[in-house]
């Protein structure tokens, strides 16, 4: 198939950047989206140009590295897939495809389509973990967990930290990511003792990083490759209010 690509090119943080047009000819329909970009890059290299820089690692939808905004939607308009798991059969011959980076102030652009998502790491470091305890593991059955709770925690734990939620949010809010990471620990007995500290720490770091504020648009949920539910955001709002009240009074 033949496609026209409109790709964001930018040499560095300081560069202005612009959309460049590429003709992607004879792309096999069974190629993945990233393979299509590989083919285009190979041709750019042969012609002596600078290939399009983009992030990826696993190419199987589990690492969260790929980060393309495709026709204005992070990971494309297909539900529940990462860009690396998107295939060219979802497009038509002759289509024009816009490819842009994930845009947010808290995700500074490094080059072309690559952005720095270490703000997420700093949020995790501010509370998205369980303090290590020494000693031997106790019998698992000593910690009963209701099935519904375990399910909710597992659903939240599916987040791969890709940042599509931020990129899709009209306010560049990181609430879906933060709420998923907080929920998957808060809901389980191992994480519950540090719940308040975790919630306050992660939300404060999120605010400090310059992400926007959630206005309940639910765009994040619609683009999330792991279909994380915005139920987690409601839970985080509630937990934050409770934690703050406790901090102020006890």
């Amino acid at each position: 198939m033949n496609l026209t690509l409109k790709v964001w090119r930018q040499k560095s943080v300081h560069d202005d950047g612009l959309i460049e047009t590429y003709q992607a000819k004879d792309i096999p329909i069974e190629a993945s989206f990233l393979e299509m970009l590989d083919i285009v890059n190979q041709r750019i290299i042969i012609d002596g140009g600078e290939p399009i820089h983009f992030d990826y690692d696993c190419r199987e939808g589990i690492c969260g590295q790929c980060s393309l905004t495709i026709n204005g939607i992070p990971h494309s308009k297909e539900r529940g897939v990462t860009a690396c798991q998107l295939h060219m059969r979802k497009f038509k011959d002759g289509d024009t495809i816009w490819i842009e980076p994930f845009r947010a102030k808290a995700f500074p652009l490094q080059r072309d389509l690559m952005v720095d998502r270490s703000a997420f790491d700093r949020i995790i470091a501010a509370g998205g973990f369980i303090d290590v305890r020494t000693g031997s593991a106790q019998d698992a059955n000593n910690l009963p967990v209701a099935k519904t709770r375990a399910d909710s925690a597992m659903d939240a734990a599916a987040c791969i930290g890709c940042g599509a939620c931020v990129a899709a949010c009209k306010n560049a809010s990181a609430m879906l990511f933060v709420s998923a990471k907080a929920a998957h620990l808060n809901l389980l007995p191992q994480g519950a003792p540090e719940k308040d500290k975790r919630v306050l720490g992660m939300v404060r770091q999120m605010d400090a990083e310059g992400f926007g504020n959630c206005t309940n648009l639910y765009e994040c949920e619609a683009v999330c490759p792991k279909e994380i539910s915005t139920e987690n955001i409601a839970r985080l709002n509630r937990d934050y209010a409770v934690a703050l009240a406790k901090e102020a009074t006890v």
């Binding site: 842009e100 845009r103 310059g210 926007g212």
Partner: peptide, 29 residues
């Protein structure tokens, strides 16, 4: 204040904007 902070959180807009689910009313509050 929230609206101003939200604008500041994305200084560079997308060249091609698209929306999946949010109705217009929610985006012009």
């Amino acid at each position: 204040q929230l609206t101003a902070a939200n604008r500041a959180a994305r200084p560079r807009r997308y060249q091609r904007e698209a929306t999946m689910v949010a109705p217009r009313s929610s985006r012009m509050m």
